[in-house]
């Protein structure tokens, strides 16, 4: 049942990606290049503004539910998900905490949810690690701050994407993000990539990067790497928040969920069942 729904979503996600690009002849190029590089060419194709196909297809807003109940049972699963992301995106593993690059990572409850924190937390919250990643906010403060539009909202699916080739490395977005979701390449990251994945570009020093909700994989009809790593467990539910029939909406309708720092007003797209 669940898998069926997911398949339905993927079909739909794939279809929108194709629709967004409009000309079938460039689909192949786009699915590898444009989305994979974080939207550089998408920008040229209208990614910054209303896309040409925007009128015919309803606007999709991708989101994620992190069901911590699954991770409480299996903390190792979170490591598997993180590992999948590291591998998919050539994320350098830099030992020095100062220069770390993190897209999805683990942290304590009081770190992930300082606004929902108090002195008498349950043992479960106290002793588990929580997955944190870019919230792909509906009203992202990083996008507002960026002086070159190197980070922007992809109109057709709501992903907050990065153009690594336009970023000047001013790090204004890092100061602006209320979730600490952004990392800066303080040095050449390439020597720190453990397993090189030729399907995704590596970055150069001096640019900011972060989770891209696997825009490059969605373009190929694949799920995000972390979601795929947790397949069948329901730990990470991914889908269109604007589609009332989607699996993620069903979960959100049924369960009590919280978000990180709702008071910042950025309207995150990542929800947590804790």
């Amino acid at each position: 049942m669940m898998d069926n729904k997911r398949r339905k979503f993927l079909k739909m996600a794939g279809a929108t990606v194709l629709a967004g690009i409009s000309a079938p002849a460039i689909v192949k190029l786009s699915s590898t290049d444009a989305v994979a590089s974080g939207g550089g060419q998408e920008a040229a194709a209208g990614g910054h503004s209303q896309s040409a196909a925007g009128a015919s297809s309803a606007r999709i807003r991708l989101g994620m539910v992190v069901d911590m109940r699954v991770f409480y049972q299996d903390q190792a699963l979170l490591d598997v998900a993180i590992e999948a992301c590291v591998k998919a995106h050539n994320i350098p593993e830099i030992p020095d905490r100062k220069s770390e690059i993190k897209w999805i990572w683990k942290t304590g409850y009081e770190n992930a949810f300082p606004e929902h924190s108090h002195n008498h937390r349950s043992q479960i919250l106290e002793h588990n690690q929580f997955a944190v990643l870019c919230n792909h906010c509906d009203n992202p403060s990083c996008v507002k701050a960026c002086p070159t539009k190197a980070t922007f909202v992809v109109e057709k699916n709501g992903i907050v994407a990065m153009d690594f080739h336009r970023c000047i490395g001013c790090r204004f977005c890092m100061a602006a993000c209320p979730f600490g979701a952004r990392s800066f390449n303080w040095q050449d990251p390439r020597p720190f990539i453990k397993r090189y994945n030729p399907d995704f570009p590596t970055r150069m020093r001096g640019v900011v990067e972060k989770c891209n909700f696997c825009g490059e994989r969605l373009a190929l009809g694949l799920e995000p790497a972390c979601v795929e790593a947790c397949k069948g467990t329901g730990a990470l539910v991914f889908g269109d928040l604007n589609d009332a029939d989607s699996e993620i909406r069903k979960v959100l309708d049924e369960e009590f969920t919280i978000q990180r720092k709702p008071s910042a007003g950025t309207i995150p797209s990542v929800f947590y069942i804790v």
Partner: peptide, 16 residues
Amino acid sequence: DLGQPLRGLNVIFFPT
């Protein structure tokens, strides 16, 4: 302070 100083003019090319 810029990570990519040579791209500094992007602020003018893509005014935001």
